[in-house]
């Protein structure tokens, strides 16, 4: 049907997009470690590294150097590699994919990755907390975009809306789509709130941090409810649309992990709370170890899983657009349907 309009049969755009996803997630981890270890200023210049061209900095000095230099310079190299992969995706898109909007989105991805690199550079040059926070928020946004690019190049998307009798649409599909998009939006807001906590300025009043923590917890509760609903409601599509139910259930599992990591991140940074824990020998004997590997891993894992939740929610939301809906849909749904049916 839409093969001629959609793209050739070349698997390269999809392969490039999936490779980009796989490279971006570890980059988010490394970026998280840079903040966790406060290594953002380990290399005080940019775009050079201690006066060297980024790619020509002596690798022996990098590998054998201090830990903060290792992760900061490694983050820059990794970022550059992701930039190259994004350009490769653009090349594949312009070579094999005929959809103008998709080509435009790959260009957006390139623009975003360049913007992200410049933000990181300015964060070093100007030593500004706000830039570090923006840099921390653009990372997950770029990761989510790479996931979307992978979805848009997938065979599932190419095949379009499933019109088989087994997948006959009803109102629940439309409701699920709305729920999935709302969940994605909540995940996005929660990520931004989390970055507020992570980059809190030492000068602010205790009441500001307290408000940010409560807001983050409130949003966590809201997100938990929405993700639980997405996972539960996706089960009704298990037989007809397993490709949608499986990531939705994974999203639920990821959220459980994230709740544990959130509690863990608090404990490894501030110890166990008072109250019931105050009467437990194991909690009272616990000493927070500053800059320990446990502290770094748990805190960074919480950050990285937040990005993964956002990306998974977006994946579910995008795939839900392929569900046959029995009533008029919103803009995004119409977009996907028109695209698939064109």
């Amino acid at each position: 049907m839409n093969q001629a309009h959609f793209q050739t049969d070349s698997p390269w755009p999809h392969r490039a997009a999936v490779l980009l996803v796989c490279a971006t997630f570890p980059l988010i981890w490394v970026g998280g470690l840079v903040t966790t270890y406060n290594a953002g200023m380990a290399v005080p210049d940019w775009p050079t590294t201690f006066g060297y061209n980024l790619f020509l900095y002596p690798w022996q000095t990098w590998i054998a150097g201090p830990w903060d230099l290792f992760i900061e310079h490694g983050h820059r190299l990794f970022g550059a590699a992701v930039g190259v992969l994004t350009i490769a995706l653009v090349a594949a898109a312009f070579r094999y994919d005929r959809r103008p909007w998709f080509r435009a989105m790959t260009l957006v991805a390139v623009a975003l990755v360049i913007f992200q690199g410049v933000l990181g550079g300015l964060r070093v040059r100007l030593d500004q907390r706000l830039l570090a926070q923006l840099h921390g928020c653009t990372g997950p946004a770029f990761f989510a975009l790479t996931v979307a690019l992978a979805v848009w190049t997938s065979r599932r998307w190419r095949d379009g809306v499933d019109h088989s009798p087994a997948a006959a649409g009803d109102r629940s599909a439309a409701r699920f789509q709305r729920l999935a998009w709302l969940t994605t939006a909540l995940a996005c807001v929660q990520l931004v709130l989390g970055s507020q906590l992570r980059h809190v300025r030492v000068e602010v009043d205790a009441s500001v941090f307290r408000a940010a923590v409560w807001l983050h917890l409130f949003m966590a509760a809201a997100l938990t409810i929405h993700v639980a609903l997405v996972a539960a409601r996706s089960l009704r599509f298990w037989n007809t649309a397993g490709w949608l139910a499986r990531p939705a259930v994974c999203l639920g599992a990821l959220l459980l992990v994230q709740l544990g990591l959130g509690g863990g991140a608090w404990v490894v940074n501030y110890g166990w709370p008072a109250g019931w824990f105050g009467q437990q020998a194991w909690a009272q004997g616990f000493v927070v170890a500053q800059e320990s590997s446990t502290q770094a891993i748990v805190t960074t894992a919480h950050v990285a899983t937040g990005s993964l939740i956002l990306a998974t929610a977006l994946l579910v939301a995008l795939r839900s657009m392929l569900l046959p809906a029995s009533r008029p849909l919103g803009t995004a749904a119409r977009f996907a349907r028109q695209e698939a049916l064109a």
Binding site: P100, L130, L134, Q196, R201, E339
Partner: peptide, 28 residues
């Protein structure tokens, strides 16, 4: 080929503005 409708574009812009405000306001 299809283009984003004005309504969709407006929704996306509003969402982006809210997010930017969330990031920027406390640092302003």
């Amino acid at each position: 080929m299809n283009k984003l409708s004005p309504a969709g574009l407006r929704t996306a812009c509003v969402a982006a503005a809210v997010l930017c405000a969330l990031v920027l306001l406390p640092g302003c």
